[in-house]
């Protein structure tokens, strides 16, 4: 009996390419830190674990590339796996600010006690928070950086009155939304809960005489004094009291390295 020569099984080879392609891509994302542009840092261990399994699967898949198979034609379903890849250059090249300002939901953290109670507002009463320690230092400039953005932002929005008069410094991109043609703009940031698909825009209403002249998407460094204002959400039309920065200085800056704000818990 003549043993059939082992020939390249195109279907198995394609699957090997897809598996190793995904593994290589995930490795690239993790190695150069781009991974946190797509998922929350706490998801990274899962990605690394998934990557390890993919490498393992690819290694064992390589044994089947030259296996004789009844069908060697590439299955059409393989094409589906390539779609997210095909668009990858577009998504990795884009900045969150561009997306946010053009097509995303802007959602300023709604304070627990809405100013105007709409007919259908939740019947839940907020848990009293008085006893809790504030993450914000008692004196000095309130500085929102990579580590402090989320805890400070939540605290300031939960207690819009408490910090009035304090000096604050934030960075973000200019977003006008429904504040266009007023003396206000939003110094916005993208906040990622889990992955970039669920990111929402958050930020601080900033009052500045030249606000209308600022261009959307421009990254700015804003310093000012905290006050509060009523803000009507662009989409929900719900009016809430939010902190407002009376701007003393605003200067343009290059896009931040850490474009996203990651809630920590």
């Amino acid at each position: 009996m003549i043993r059939r020569l082992r020939s390249l099984n195109r279907n198995e080879a394609t699957w090997l390419l897809i598996l190793s392609g995904y593994a290589a891509f995930l490795f690239y994302l993790v190695a150069c830190g781009k991974i946190t542009d797509l998922v929350h840092p706490r998801m990274v261990p899962f990605v690394v674990f998934g990557l390890a399994i993919l490498v393992l699967l690819a290694v064992f898949q390589s044994r089947r590339v030259f296996s004789r198979g009844t069908e060697s034609a590439v299955k059409p379903g393989m094409a589906l796996f390539v779609v997210p890849f095909a668009f990858a250059p577009l998504s990795l090249g884009s900045t969150s600010a561009v997306l946010a300002a053009n097509s995303r939901t802007i959602s300023l953290y709604s304070s627990p006690e809405p100013v105007s109670v709409t007919a259908n507002i939740s019947a839940q009463s907020p848990r009293p928070q008085a006893a809790e320690a504030s993450p914000i230092p008692a004196r000095g400039v309130i500085e929102l950086n990579e580590k402090t953005y989320f805890p400070f932002y939540s605290e300031l929005n939960n207690h819009p009155n408490k910090y009035a008069g304090r000096t604050i410094h934030v960075t973000g991109f200019v977003y006008h939304g429904n504040l266009r043609n007023t003396d206000k703009f939003i110094a916005g940031r993208e906040m990622m809960w889990c992955c970039a698909a669920d990111a929402v825009t958050i930020g601080f209403v900033s009052r500045f005489p030249g606000a209308a002249g600022l261009k959307d998407d421009q990254w700015v460094s804003v310093t000012g004094v905290l006050d509060k204002t009523e803000y009507t959400d662009e989409y929900t039309q719900a009016t809430t009291v939010v902190p407002m920065i009376r701007v003393t200085s605003v200067r343009a800056m290059p896009k931040m390295d850490f474009a996203y704000v990651y809630p920590t818990f």
Binding site: Y22, L26, L38, G50, L57, P84, L90, S91, S103, A197
Partner: peptide, 24 residues
């Protein structure tokens, strides 16, 4: 390209987020 970029970013980030769990 905003629309396309949003599609691309959404598709890629859901894939990268969920693929490890699919693998697990």
């Amino acid at each position: 390209l905003t629309f396309l970029r949003k599609f691309a970013l959404t598709a890629l980030s859901i894939t990268v987020e969920a693929l490890p769990f699919l693998v697990i």
